[in-house]
Design a protein around this nucleic acid. Structure first.
Length: 585
RNA sequence: GCGCCUGUAGCUCAACGGACAGAGCACCGGCCUUCUAAGCCGGGGGUUGCAGGUUCGAUUCCUGCCAGGCGCGCCA
């Protein structure tokens, strides 16, 4: 039983509440601002309203009524708070026991019960660069996918590629005009992007370019075999390039079907909107009014342009309906930035169709747009985009250089690595810097790309977490060398934990709540924040105490157990963020 | 003009309506003959954009300003 559950029950008993009130009380438990004040704190403000008594009075009464037991050492009132001190030895066993009993699953819980979540993320545009800005959707989405899955949901990862639209007209126009097969062969994506940018730039001074591009796309829509063959080739080349990046980052999707794959459904769906009386004609276009549903003035969702062509919004409608029919999701989440209006329109239009057609399952209400902040300094058209592959390469190279400097300065501390191991470490550390940077703030805050900020290796960074993990693994290596069990057993009753050990234990107990918060808030940052606090607690402990002391086997064993619990918790959290826990650095 | 988002330390960012607003970077001072110094300990640094309101209590909620970002039917 988690400590907080036990404490909540003790609080309920002291208040003479029935046991079913305990979970509610447990939710308001916090940590006091300073460890000297206590291990857990219960604020009495909510009770003050119910009991019509001053909070400090309630706190004093409550503190006096809480009976110390095996876990609760004492309760003291401090103003409007009841602060609880726990029995460190007993509490440490209660927290560490479950971690060591099933290390790989610590932090997980079956909240999802096998319900399906469709998660749409990454979704790069074919023939546009996969630049640093795309890392946000990819990383946040992949993180959420792992978190949902860890909590018992069945996750369908969709990479809804932007593989349809006028941009292909531009690329094909450029290809027909300047195309060079050797270049395409040599460096597919970069070359396609150059073609796109070149055509787009020319269209800014020469409007006929835009016309020709539109015409080419129209031919593609009409099934012109030559154009279709080019489209197919460009799509495959681009996807092959994206796949290299995904493999590098250990990310895989269940589907790479893009907009083109729902084209055959679009006309049928538009027809449904019309027949249901939801769509109407406006200025020659076919639209769905959504201001009423949303309760504010907003442009309608456009299904068909005045020239008769269907829109991406119509494709999104068709795609959503198709998702529901295929997966029957409990949530349909789009990890897409800066398109709040579009998704509001999309969900509202589906809501109107649901009402008109009297659907039994009101699934449009389960559709969500998980947005995130803007990456500044990264416009494709202005040519200032930084390719993700280049950032990954630079991160890896810097990581390698730093490792070489450090190992040269202190050769004894650094194990000799084979070339392959060094490659793996450099790559993993570089990725950690990038991936952690992305989740080191809440997703809605804007970020500015800056090499030196993004590629930090010290302080609150990914490499710091990996470094902490590697230190722990170093302790286990020494333990084995000394002939000790490397913290694998169940926690034994050892000496009472010292302050630094105790704070680490308490922090470990908070991991499941951090994972749950990351899930409900759709916010991987919750885990990043926790891991930094965890590593920080560990390093404070590590610096103050020696784990392995051959002269003191009891303390060594207790500390090895604590370090093992910390290492597996850190590893679980890092994996959720897509960062590789390293045994050595 | 309308909508969404954001204003917190020099910089990058935290803080379920709760105790004295916290971390990292940068700066200053300490700590490697002991398990990796990519680390630890200490220090200076703040009118939380401004003005009101709600209440026992507001960085957090509401209103109005100011500033920035993004978007606003035939690009996707």
């Amino acid at each position: 039983m988690p400590i907080t559950t036990h404490v909540a029950q003790a609080l309920a008993a002291a208040l003479e509440y029935p046991p079913e009130h305990a979970p509610g009380l447990g939710r308001s438990l916090t940590r006091p601002p300073s460890p000297a004040l206590g291990d857990l704190a219960f604020p009495c403000f909510a009770l003050a309203k119910q009991l019509r008594m001053a909070p400090p009075k309630i706190a004093a009464d409550l503190a006096a009524r809480i009976r110390p037991d095996a876990l609760i050492a004492r309760a003291v009132a401090a103003g409007p708070y009841v602060n609880l001190f726990l029995d460190r030895t007993a509490a440490a066993r209660a927290i560490l026991g479950p971690i060591l009993a099933d290390p790989a699953r610590y932090g997980s819980r079956n909240i999802g019960g096998g319900q399906v979540i469709v998660l749409d993320f990454s979704a790069p545009n074919i023939a546009k660069p996969f630049h640093f800005g795309h890392l946000r959707s990819t990383n946040i989405g992949a993180g959420l996918a792992r978190i949902f899955s860890f909590l018992g949901y069945r996750v369908v990862r969709k990479n809804y590629l932007g593989d349809w639209g006028t941009q292909f007209g531009f690329v094909i126009y450029a290809w027909q005009r300047w195309g060079d097969a050797a270049e395409l062969q040599a460096r597919a994506i970069e070359y396609l992007v150059e073609l796109y940018v070149r055509a787009y730039r020319q269209s800014e001074t020469d409007p006929t370019v835009r016309e020709q591009a539109r015409h080419l796309f129209l031919r593609l829509e009409q099934g012109d075999p030559d154009i279709a063959a080019l489209w197919q080739q460009f799509r495959e080349l681009s996807l092959a390039g994206f796949m290299k990046t995904y493999q590098r980052l250990d990310i895989a999707f269940d589907s790479y079907e893009g907009e083109a794959a729902v084209n055959h459904l679009v006309e049928g769906v538009i027809e449904r909107f019309v027949r249901a009386g939801v769509a109407e004609e406006s200025q020659g276009a076919l639209v769905v009014q959504v201001s009423g549903v949303l309760g504010r003035e907003i442009a309608p969702l456009m299904l068909r342009k005045s020239d008769g062509a269907s829109t991406y919004a119509a494709r999104d409608c068709a795609e959503a309906i198709d998702r529901w029919e295929r997966h029957g999701f409990s949530a349909n989440i789009y990890v897409v930035s800066r398109q709040e209006d579009h998704f509001a329109q999309l969900f509202a239009a589906l809501t109107r169709l649901a009402a008109a057609e009297q659907w039994e399952a009101h699934w449009p209400a389960t559709c969500e747009n998980v947005s995130f902040g803007y990456v500044r300094g990264m416009s494709t058209r202005k040519g200032e985009a930084v390719w993700l592959e280049d950032v990954l390469d630079e991160a890896r190279d810097r990581a390698r250089r730093i490792r070489e400097e450090k190992s040269a300065a202190n050769p004894r501390a650094f194990p000799t690595l084979s070339a392959a191991e060094l490659d793996h470490v450099s790559e993993s550390v570089g990725q950690a810097a990038l991936l952690y940077f992305d989740v080191s703030s809440r997703r809605l805050s804007d970020v500015t790309f800056d090499w030196d900020t993004v590629l930090q290796f010290e302080g609150n960074t990914g490499p710091y977490l990996q470094y902490s993990h590697a230190r722990m693994c170093g302790i286990f290596r020494r333990a084995v060398a000394e002939g000790l069990a490397a913290g694998s057993g169940t926690p034994q009753a050892g000496p009472e934990p010292a302050d630094e050990e105790w704070l680490l234990v308490l922090k470990l107990g908070e991991f499941p709540a951090a994972v749950a918060a990351a899930c409900t808030e759709r916010e991987p940052h919750e885990i990043a924040k926790f891991l930094h606090e965890l590593a920080s607690s560990f390093n404070a402990f590590y610096n103050k105490h020696t784990v392995i002391d051959p002269a003191d086997p009891a303390t060594s064993a207790a500390r090895l157990t604590l370090v093992r619990a910390t290492q597996v918790t850190l590893a679980n959290g890092l994996k959720l963020l897509g960062i590789r826990p390293l045994e050595t650095m």
